[in-house]
Design a protein around this nucleic acid. Structure first.
Lengths: 352, 352
DNA sequence: TTGAAAGCGCTAACAT
DNA sequence: ATGTTAGCGCTTTCAA
């Protein structure tokens, strides 16, 4: 910056003022400085600036992975917002428990970001407490944390509407396939199950725990087992509500491999509306992760700039059902428990 | 840090030495300092440190998007490596031309990162020249830049092997569906086409430009048009090599909607092996983006640490064909140009 | 092995 | 509107 000042024949203060766009610089001086800066390819060192201002000019995100559709979309929504606010984006990826422990022990984000967005973790109280002492606004994304700013999709309402869609089609035996999230990450499983139950209850359909099964997402074998368990029930479901599209696709795969038509003999409903849902013509409950990311970013910026913001604000984003080709009325039966009305059960056993 | 020093009864120099793990600290002092730091939840400010050391402790990546399978996987491979090296990850997302221009004008990464990984862009010479003057190592990922460190998958060899797979099955009329990448981003299109042509040439199969069509990735209509063009040829292909799985899936979708069996009447081969390939049982040429990310990160760290590294090193990563269920020998014909041997052409026209 | 002191590049308060 | 000056929190000589 000293070089620029010398070249433009001014002091470094003036250079600093110019480069920060302060209005207290005369047009001609401004022009000289800007040209000098350009000629020297000068860029302000955020490091040095932040030492004085106490602000780093970057927003950190804590994510379990970068490889999922949700995270990719959410960050794609967040990034342009930050850029337009002149903020950088620092990413902490915490794929496993070891990394997680180390992150919360060392809290490397401390003093190295102006705000932290925590995505999709089921945090312990202790972890939350540590974040409270981080010295920067922390926004919780895809999770509800009482008394802290949070942004999430209304999973309960989404699952409620999805289940209603199946009920309206005439289904009464509706299964719910959860994901098992092994590592303390929250994928809204709980809320979606809640919405499912709520819809059944309001329709007067009795809850049956046998209809709720779990499988790891993206796992063929797991899905096959889960489906197998459902099909071997004395009274199998006529519809399956999968907690994520990825699971729905696995379920459809298994059903078709088993000779069960979708949606002819079994309806399948997903949740997410990720791109592959369209290729499978999957009826699903759509959410918009990029809206989640953008909204969370807006909240973060507001908190950083200390604009009058409710520091306990919860922002809830909507969902909507997209009817496609994997849901239909249940097959016509001649009465409950009449075998001939059920889906064929010849080859349902998990393969491999 | 002063607080820590006071609490431990030492000078800040000693604290600094302790926290950086220098060996010139006596064990008992070290213990005192570490405890004090822990009690005060102290974390070193990278900003202040970098002001002195000239190193920022972070690696920047320039990516066109965060929402693609490739980018998500690549960054998932990169992130743990950086973390274990104590480096932060800063992400610059450049989704469009305007952002791109502004990035290369201002080069915000200058002085704010120790290295830059540039992913999947088709850079102009001027852009490359600007990056040369960035003052930090720049690693080019998913692209070959002469004289600069680069990491990429061997797309030519991949496409060569993929095409050979189809040739071995007996196909002679093999189409190639490219992606149109509107915005100056490189998706290895060119190299894959090269490998395709090379395989045909070495097998003595004449090249036919009518068999090479393009479509935007992830676009049903575009894929339908491309397929339509192929099917309306006087001598339609018996196999389609799609440059990306995403396109392959769209092609399969269109073919099946048209009543053409895959692979019975038409084989389809993809490239990538992204998760949905498995759900579609898609034969494909697999690459490993996470290896790309990790390798590029290793190269970046080596360059940053100035270990004796060839600064023009190109690292080429392998691919392999994964045979699944969308490729098979061509349908038996009674001779060339015999209509009865062709796929049925009843409803091939693009719908909608 | 430890401490004192200088200074990294910038911004902010004060002076002009 | 511009310049002068004093740090921001660290690391790194240099001395002890």
């Amino acid at each position: 910056m000293a070089d620029v000042a010398e070249r433009a024949g001014v002091s470094t203060s003036t250079v600093s003022r110019t480069l920060r766009g302060l209005s207290t610089v005369s047009p001609e001086v401004r022009a000289r400085v800007e040209q000098a800066a350009r000629e020297l390819h000068f860029a302000v060192s955020r490091q040095a600036a932040s030492l004085v201002t106490g602000r780093t000019g970057s927003v950190a995100v804590l994510v379990p992975t970068l490889g999922s559709w949700f995270m990719g979309s959410a960050l794609s929504g967040l990034a342009p917002l930050l850029r337009s606010a002149g903020m950088e984006l620092t990413v902490y990826v915490i794929p496993d428990l070891a990394e997680r422990t180390s992150f919360f022990e060392r809290l490397p984000a401390r003093r190295n970001a102006d705000a932290l967005l925590v995505f999709s973790f089921d945090l312990t109280d202790e972890e939350t407490a540590r974040l409270d002492n981080l010295g920067m606004p922390v926004i919780y994304v895809s999770q509800h944390v009482a008394g802290r700013p949070s942004v999430y999709v209304d999973d309960v309402a989404g699952a409620l509407r999805g289940t209603r869609h199946l009920l309206h089609l005439g289904h009464r035996r509706i299964a719910f396939v959860q994901s098992v999230s092994a590592r303390g990450f929250s994928f809204s499983s709980h809320e979606r199950l809640l919405g499912y139950r709520q819809a059944l209850t309001e329709a007067g359909v009795p809850l049956d725990d046998d209809l709720v099964v779990a499988t790891p997402a993206g796992d063929k074998r797991g899905a096959a087992e889960a489906v197998g368990r459902l099909l071997s029930l004395r009274e199998p479901p006529t519809a399956v509500f999968a907690e994520q599209d990825e699971i729905a696709v696995a379920v459809i795969w298994t059903l078709r491999a088993t000779g069960i038509e979708v949606p002819g003999q079994m309806s399948v409903l997903g949740f997410d509306d990720q791109p592959s849902a369209e290729w499978f013509d999957l009826t699903t409950v759509a959410q918009s992760p990029s809206d989640v990311g953008r909204t969370a970013g807006e909240l973060a910026l507001a908190l950083v700039n200390d604009t009058e913001v409710d520091r306990e604000r919860h922002i809830v984003l909507p969902t909507h059902v997209i009817p496609r080709a994997t849901t239909a009325p249940p097959p016509v039966t001649r009465g409950p428990r009449d075998d001939s009305g059920r889906p064929p059960r010849g080859r349902w056993a998990p393969r491999g």
